[in-house]
């Protein structure tokens, strides 16, 4: 990792993309594994347990983008990039309110 050059260059090697990529890869791999095992079990006739495993896989996938916004917010706060930390917070608040109202619908 190259650090401490002028701000233009620093933006170019910004590690946030790599951190988020790692997080999203973890989320999608865990979700894919749960889904694959769940579907395989379903095919072999474990009809009670398999749908629940699939649902857990879908929920992991659902949580991944939300975790991505949280991770971005933390990175921006750490880097004292206050504008973008604020933007991430706005997104998180909108998501939280949406989920709160959505559940009641």
């Amino acid at each position: 990792m190259v650090v401490g050059i002028d701000p233009e260059d620093k933006a170019a090697v910004h590690p946030i993309e790599l951190v988020l990529a790692r997080l999203l890869r973890l989320g999608s791999m865990v979700a894919a594994a749960l889904l694959a095992v769940g579907i395989a079990l379903m095919v072999f006739g474990h009809t009670g347990f398999a749908p629940r495993l699939i649902t857990v896989g879908l929920l992991v996938l659902l949580g991944t983008p939300v975790m991505r916004v949280v991770a971005a917010a933390i990175i921006f706060v750490k880097e004292r990039d206050w504008h973008f930390a604020l933007f991430s917070l706005v997104v998180l608040c909108a998501l939280a309110v949406g989920i709160y109202f959505g559940k009641g619908m």
């Binding site: 949580g63 983008p65 916004v69 998501l95 989920i99 959505g102």
Partner: peptide, 8 residues
Amino acid sequence: VTAASGAV
């Protein structure tokens, strides 16, 4: 992100 709130 947009889809996540709908999916909930």
